Simulated scan of single mutants.
Amino acid sequence: MPGHILVVDDDPLLCSLLEMALGREGYQTHVVYSGRAALEALDHEPFDLILLDIMMSDLNGFDVIRQLRSSPTLATIPVIFLTARVDAISQRIGMDAGAIEYLTKPITPDDLIARVKAALADRS
């Protein structure tokens, strides 16, 4: 069964592409362009998965996931980092903070969909 996915990235073009790719597979998406907007959206809607960029102007992705993991109601939502940061230190920080995947841009739609399907299958 398709899920409800929160897409968090400050690049509107990338967000549109992600929305199209996920929508073709039947996923419902909600897009926000900042870390703060992500936390606000999570206060109002339930999500099955979060695709999260790291480099954003207000709260970076590491800050967002740390806040999620400290919240009893949000801590179990799986987070996949989707980022341009390819260094091993960032990957380790992201995984240690609680991400289930660390994907680097660019990513093909097929690879992204496969990871999303796997993440949602693991959750059910």
Results as ranks from 00 to 15, higher is better:
22 L>Y: 00
16 S>K: 10
123 R>P: 06
3 G>H: 05
26 G>I: 07
41 A>L: 11
69 R>M: 04
99 A>N: 05
101 E>D: 14
47 F>L: 07
111 D>Y: 06
11 D>N: 14
23 G>W: 04
90 S>H: 09
99 A>Y: 06
15 C>V: 00
121 A>Y: 11
28 Q>A: 13
65 I>R: 10
23 G>T: 03
45 E>T: 14
116 V>W: 02
99 A>T: 05
61 G>T: 10
21 A>L: 07
17 L>S: 13
41 A>N: 00
53 D>E: 08
59 L>S: 08
32 V>T: 00
94 G>V: 10
83 T>F: 03
70 S>K: 14
119 A>L: 07
63 D>L: 02
94 G>H: 04
28 Q>W: 07
84 A>M: 10
56 M>H: 00
20 M>R: 14
111 D>M: 14
97 A>G: 11
63 D>I: 03
42 L>M: 15
3 G>D: 04
76 T>E: 14
79 V>H: 09
101 E>P: 06
52 L>G: 01
42 L>W: 11
5 I>M: 09
64 V>H: 02
34 S>W: 10
90 S>I: 02
114 A>T: 12
28 Q>D: 12
8 V>M: 02
114 A>N: 12
21 A>Y: 03
14 L>C: 00
91 Q>H: 12
27 Y>G: 06
109 P>I: 01
2 P>H: 04
94 G>D: 11
42 L>I: 01
71 S>N: 14
20 M>C: 07
87 D>K: 04
24 R>H: 13
21 A>R: 00
119 A>K: 08
5 I>R: 09
83 T>Q: 10
66 R>I: 04
37 A>R: 09
87 D>W: 00
48 D>P: 08
89 I>T: 15
56 M>N: 00
117 K>F: 02
104 T>V: 15
37 A>C: 11
35 G>F: 03
19 E>G: 12
56 M>S: 10
70 S>I: 09
58 D>Q: 11
12 P>C: 02
17 L>Q: 13
98 G>A: 04
42 L>G: 07
86 V>R: 15
83 T>A: 06
120 L>W: 08
124 S>H: 14
47 F>M: 11
